[in-house]
């Protein structure tokens, strides 16, 4: 038996590509959660609301310091006991999204902290309402600066989707495993799976790097 069988490789490619679509779907939906929730976390923490501030801090620390896999298991096994049963796909989106929201909140925070004090003072001088200060002055300056960092996190999320095979989500690696178990040939499925990740995430990270460089020079 040859080490690498091209016919077999081409035969399984369509199935793997279909599974890749699921991976991308989870990545994109998870990104929406992470990017929005992270912004909410960052703004809420900046408002220094007593009690909520400490609770949020503790929540972010716990989520940041514990494995995503354990958090996914938590959502998958604990929530149903409280009457909330989510499909594996939704658990994946929520788990990935909340986990990365704790990272993106730090990124937004750095962006907000970098806004010169004069901008805040000018807002006060113009007596802008709270909401206008955030939506009209601070965030439009803070968010574009941190786009490359946020982009990096989206790429990281993409690479973490295979974890979800532990709860039965059929993404690329799980599909590769199932294909392999039919024929007992694992070389082609796992190698192709790896190449698919590289093929998407390498150009994406190049793009982010270019964005980063443009910002530095701008």
């Amino acid at each position: 038996m040859p080490l690498w069988d091209w016919n077999y490789a081409f035969e399984i490619l369509p199935d793997l590509l279909w599974a890749l679509v699921t991976t991308i779907e989870i990545t994109l939906l998870g990104s929406v959660v992470a990017l929005l929730l992270g912004l909410v976390f960052a703004v809420l923490r900046r408002l220094h609301i007593p009690v909520l501030d400490q609770v949020l801090w503790a929540f972010i620390e716990v989520v940041r310091s514990t494995p995503l896999l354990v958090q996914v298991f938590f959502l998958f096994f604990v929530l149903p006991q409280f009457g909330v049963t989510l499909s594996a796909f939704v658990v994946g989106v929520v788990g990935l999204g909340v986990h990365y929201a704790t990272y993106t909140s730090e990124v937004y925070r750095a962006g907000i902290d970098a806004i010169p004090k004069g901008q805040w003072e000018a807002c006060t001088a113009l007596s802008l309402p709270r909401l206008r200060i955030w939506t009209g002055v601070i965030l439009p300056q803070a968010v574009p600066r941190v786009l490359p960092a946020l982009g990096n996190y989206v790429i990281s999320m993409f690479k973490e989707v295979p974890l979800l095979l532990a709860i039965g989500v059929v993404e690329v690696v799980n599909e590769a495993r199932e294909l392999g178990s039919l024929t007992f040939r694992y070389t082609e499925p796992y190698t192709i799976a790896g190449l698919l990740f590289l093929l998407l995430s390498y150009p994406a990270s190049m793009l982010v790097r270019r964005l980063e460089r443009r910002r530095v020079h701008a």
Binding site: L3, V161, P162, V173, Y190, T191, A193, G194, F197, L198
Partner: peptide
């Protein structure tokens, strides 16, 4: 950096032995 850690793990654990 460009591939998933789970793929790397499965590759080294399941594919490398074959090779």
């Amino acid at each position: 950096r460009g591939t998933s850690e789970v793929v790397q793990l499965f590759w080294i654990y399941f594919v490398l032995p074959v090779l």
